[in-house]
């Protein structure tokens, strides 16, 4: 799977740490879209996503001088953004368990075998379907949701995802597997019904 595009752009850490505002603005333009999108997907609303975006860059601006370059700049920014998102999520859903490892709730075994791959593309990508897809991700536990969003939506590598979330690479793989299978199961129900409707219509 391809590395995220943002890795290709380079920024001068020296300039950023010396307080070069133009360089900071350039960096902000480069990373603001994926960070806003991540916030939007985790919290599910634009206002929270904007708050996360602003807080991320305010914190980055204040602490860039402490950036040691042990991880990529993108990893560092994503980590700040993820922490902001989790903080907001705690505020919104205080009952939520935000442990990022050892997620083992629920089963992921396929219950029914439905082959919905044959549905037409426009039906799978309709506005209604897309709303369902987003809702399904938001209903995952945070540990599964974050790994899935980073890997399969933002297309970050296993290694980078592990660094951002500060968990092991094997924990990333396990969460990713669970998230994918759980989502597949959700889509199975959803598209299974659509498939039935089509069959009745065409009968």
């Amino acid at each position: 799977m391809s590395e995220i595009q943002t890795n290709k752009e380079t920024f001068s850490i020296e300039a950023l740490q010396a307080g070069d505002r133009a360089e900071f603005a350039r960096m902000m333009d480069h990373f603001s879209t994926p960070i806003y999108r991540l916030g939007l997907k985790i919290l599910g609303n634009e206002q929270d996503a904007e708050d996360i975006l602003q807080e991320t860059f305010i914190k980055a601006y204040r602490s860039i001088e402490n950036f040691e370059g042990r991880s990529a700049l993108s990893t560092w920014l994503y980590r700040i953004a993820t922490n902001e998102a989790l903080m907001l999520l705690r505020k919104r859903k205080p009952a939520l368990d935000l442990v990022l490892e050892d997620d083992d709730e629920g089963d992921i075994e396929p219950h029914e075998i439905v082959d919905w791959c044959c549905l037409p593309e426009e039906e799978m990508l309709s506005t209604e379907s897309r709303i369902f897809l987003e809702k399904a991700v938001q209903e995952l536990s945070p540990s599964l949701q974050l790994v899935f969003l980073m890997r399969d939506v933002e297309r970050l590598s296993i290694k980078e995802t592990a660094q951002i979330l500060e968990i092991s690479e094997s924990a990333v793989k396990v969460s990713l597997m669970r998230a994918r299978l759980r989502l597949r199961e959700e889509l199975n129900h959803y598209f299974g019904v659509k498939l039935d409707i089509r069959k009745v219509r065409n009968a």
Partner: peptide, 16 residues
């Protein structure tokens, strides 16, 4: 079918 629908699930999310 499980394999194909899993691939499709990932494709759909990447596509959107």
């Amino acid at each position: 079918i499980v394999l194909n629908t899993l691939k499709k699930t990932i494709d759909l999310y990447q596509g959107t």
